[in-house]
Design a binder for these strands. Sequence first.
DNA 1: CAGTGAGCGAGCTTCCGCTTGACTT
Length: 790
Amino acid sequence: MAKNLVIVESPAKAKTIESFLGKDYMVKSSFGHIRDLDKNKLSVDIQHDFTPQYEIPREKKKVIEELLAAARKAEIIWLASDEDREGEAIAWHLYEVLGLEESHTRRIVFHEITKKAIQQAIENPRFIDFNLVDAQQARRVLDRLVGYELSPLLWKKVKPALSAGRVQSVAVRLIVEREFEIRNFNPTDYFRVTGLFQLPNKDEKAQLTAELDQRLPTKEATLEFLNHIIGSTYTVINVEKKPGKRSPAAPFTTSTLQQEAARKLGFSVARTMMIAQQLYESGLITYMRTDSVNLSDLALAMAQDEIIKLYGKEYSNTRQYTTRTKGAQEAHEAIRPTSMERHQAGENEAQRKLYELIWKRTMASQMSDALLEKTTITIAISKTNHYHFISRGEVVIFDGFLKVYSESVDEETDEMNAEILPPVSTGDELKEKSITAVQKFTPPPYRYTEASLVKKLEELGIGRPSTYAPIISTIQKREYVEKKDHAGIEKTAHILTLKNGKIKEETKVEKWGAEKGKLTPTDIGILVTQFLMNNFENIMDYQFTARVEKEFDEIAEGKLKWNKMIQRFYWPFHETVVKTQQTQEKVKGERLLGVDPVSGKNVYAKIGRFGAMVQLGESKDPTGQKPRFASLRKNQSIETITLEEALSLFKLPRSVGMYMEKEIIASTGRFGPYLLYNSVFYSLPKDEDPLVIDQEKAIQIIEEKNRKEAAKIIKTFPERPDVVIQNGRYGPYIKIGSENIPIPKKVAPESLDLQQCLELQKKYLESKANPSEMKETPAQKKKSKSKGKK
DNA sequence: CAGTGAGCGAGCTTCCGCTTGACTT
C-alpha cells in the first residue's frame, strides 16, 4: 500500500503526477472545491464575526469518501492544490473535512507539472497558510453577501429571479455604457485624399500610392484644394529608410487564447474552453485555466530544440515573459503543448485547429524578432507648400517569428496597410494619374464581443480564468445582454476625383456602424444597471474589485483580520440595501408611446413580472376597466418600440384559419411566437411573423412537426396509447404520459413489450427515489419530509 | 414548456471560483 497520498485539484493532473512519483505515492483528485456555503441560504453568520457555514454538496460526498479511505491508509498526506488563494482554501477544507493531523500533513505547491518541479515541491513542504485561507474566506463571504443581498433587492424592485454580483453587474455595466457611448456618438466627417502616381521611365504598372499628410474638413475645402493643385508637378523630396522590428506575443493565457480563438477561428469563449479541456484531458496541452505567461525551463528547452531543428539557429530567441495582468495569481504555466515535437494533434477539426494555434503561439514566443525596413517617401506638390503626399512602406528583412504566427487585432485601423514600395529616389518627378478624395465618417465605438469583454474584464482585474466563460453565459441567461446584429445607418459619401485636370464628383452609399453578433444590453440590463448605479455606485465602480483585492492581499500577509475587513464593508453596504428597500420605487422603465386611435386609451411600454411588455389603458383606471397587456417580441425593446408596433402586438392571439375542421391560433408566448392547434404548440421559425402568417404556411408548419414527431416513434401499444417508445436526443426512451424513462444500452428498444416497459418504469422510479446509499443531505431530507414519506 | 400582468401570500429565484462527470429527452 502506498505510504503517501497526494491530493491535487484536477484528475488529469493527478494522472500525470502519479507517473512522476513512483509506487510509494498514490495521487488523487479533489475535483476542485469540496465544500462551499449552502446555496439555499446566506450561510454567513452576520452576528458572529461573519462565520461561514460550510456544507459538502451532495455530488461531492463520493469524492470525500474515497479520499477519506485513501487517507486512512496513508502515512503522509500531501495537500498539493494550486498555489493560489483558492488552492490554499481547498487544502484547508481537505484538512478539516478529512480530519487530518498536522504531523501527518504536508502542504506542497508547484506551478508547473514537470518531474523536476514535483520533486522539488516534495523536498520543500510547508504547512497550510492560514492567512491565505482567510483571504479566500473574505473573498467568498464578500461575494456571497453582495450577491445574496443585492439579488433579492432586484426581485422586489425590478423583476423576480434577477441577479447581481461583484463581477456580473460590472460586466453588464461595461456593455450598457458602451451602448450609450454609441447612442451619443456624433460622427464627424472628413476627406481623405489619396494620390496615384506613375513612376518615371517605367512601364504602366509601376505606380505609387500616397496619402495627403492632412485630412480635409469639408467638401468645400476639398474642392478648393483640388482646384488649387490642378496642373501641379509632383517631386519626390525625401526617401527615408529606417530599420524596425516586431516582437512575438507572449504565450497564451486563458484570456488571450479566448481572444485569438475568437478572432482567428471564430470560436465562442465557451467553445474554446470546451475544446481546450479536451486537449488537456488527452495530455496534449498544459492546463487551460491560467493567468500566467510563464513557461517552464523544460518547455523553453523543448521549444528551442524544435525551432533550431525546423528553422535554424538564427530563428531561436529564448525568452521569458512577465505577467502584467492585475491580480494574476500564476498558479500554472502558460497554455502550451506538452510536447513541442507534436506539430499537429487532436481528434477532430476543432481540436486540431485549436492545438495548432497553441503550438504556433508557443513556438513564436520563443523565436527571434522580425526585422523590418520602414520606408517613408515624401512627395512635394508644386502649387502648394502646405501639403505633401506621403507613402509608407514596409519590407520584412528577416521574418523571425512571423514565419509561424502573427497575432490578430480586433479592429481594422484606418491606416493604409503598409506594403512594399517601388524603388524611387529623391528628385524623381512623378506623373499624376489621379487624385481621389473620399469622404469618411468617424466610426462609433465598437460594441463588445465575448472575447473583447473578457479582455476588458481581465484588464480591470475582474473575474478569473475559470470564470470568464461562465460570466458571459450568466449575463445572457439573465437576459441582461444578448448577441445582436445591428444594421447600421446608410450614409452617402462624396468622392471627388481629379484626373487629367478635371474634377469629377460621385457619391457612394455605405453602411455606417453596422455590426454582427455583438453583445448588446436589453431593457432589463439597462434598467438594472441604472438602478445599481444610482444606489450602489461603490460596488459598480470599475475599481471596486481592485480595491478589495488589495485588502485580500493584506489579509494574506497577516496585516488585516478577514472578518474585520468584511465588517467594515458590510455594515454601510447593508444600510444602503435597507434604505434602498424602503425608499426606492419599483423600476418599471415606463414609456408612454401614444394613444390608441380606436379606444382612445394610452399605450405604454414597461417592465412587467415576465419582462418587457406593452400596456393598453391605465393600471388604475377610475372606471375600473382593466388594461390589456402583451409581451414584447425578442427583437423589440422598450426604448425603441413605436406606437404602431405596440398596437399590432395587441392583435395577438389571432385566428389564422382552419385545418381539418379545427382552428389554428397564432400568438407569442414566453418562448417566442407559436401556433396553437388541437391543443398542441408549434413554435414558429425565426422568419415567420405570427401577425402575418397565413393558413397555408401554418398548415405546412403543423404537418412538418407532426411528421417529425411521427418519425421519432419506434413502437406504440394499442392497449396503452400513453406508452410510446421513441428516439430522443440522448437515445431511445419510453414515454409514459409526461414521464420519460431511459432505456438501458444493452436492451434493443424495438424488442420491448408493454410489460417490460412498465417494469423499466418501476425500476427507474425506484432508482430515482434512492439515488445511492449515501447519507441524506439536508436538502433531501426536507424534500422527503414534505412528501410525507418515511 | 405558454396566453401572465390587479392583489394577497406561500415559495421560489441569487453570488464567485475551484473542478468534472452524471444527468437530461
